[in-house]
Amino acid sequence: MALDAQDDRSDDTLLALYGQGDRAAARALAGRLTPLAFRVAQRMLRDPAEAEDVAQEAMLRLWRAAPGWQAGTAKVSTWLYRVVVNLSTDRLRRRRSVPLEAAPEPEDGRPGADEGLVEADRAAALEAALQTLPERQREAVVLRHLEGLANPEIAEIMGVGVEAVESLTARGKRGLMQVLAGRRAELGYGDG
């Protein structure tokens, strides 16, 4: 069961309660926001250990921000997305780009594979293809198509205008298509 499964209070409320020393509020917030932080970091970095480090650092910054948090000035989740994206970008810039060849290849025996394996392979292929995109395009695509955020919120997270988000997303999708087009057949899609 998720830590916040029975807690319908807003992130703002929980953060304010944590700022007053409420231990239960901390547990609820951690249960709600840690998956978000880890998920985005993992999709940006494709390295579970690094993604855990980023998620922990982002949450630590949230705890520290709690006492001075101004309710209503920003969504807690938007603030956390921004921190995670920035921390992930910092790490990406410190390391060399990961070649697509390092990504796990889909299993053989495609006709006999069940649908779950096909879906897992498609997910892995997309995550590998994301690593080939420039950082800003990757951020925009992850936030728009994997996190399902609206363009204005993505613009706030990335610190750019909505038009820039649209442009980054469109270019990112074209880049992904170029990488993934050659793998249609092996990933269970027809040649079209």
Binding site: F38, R39, A123, A125, L146, R184
Partner: peptide, 17 residues
């Protein structure tokens, strides 16, 4: 085609340990 990849990735969301 891309939406199929996105859907698969959304469903395979990585979870924290």
């Amino acid at each position: 085609l891309l939406e199929g990849f996105f859907r698969a990735a959304r469903e395979a969301r990585p979870a924290p340990s």
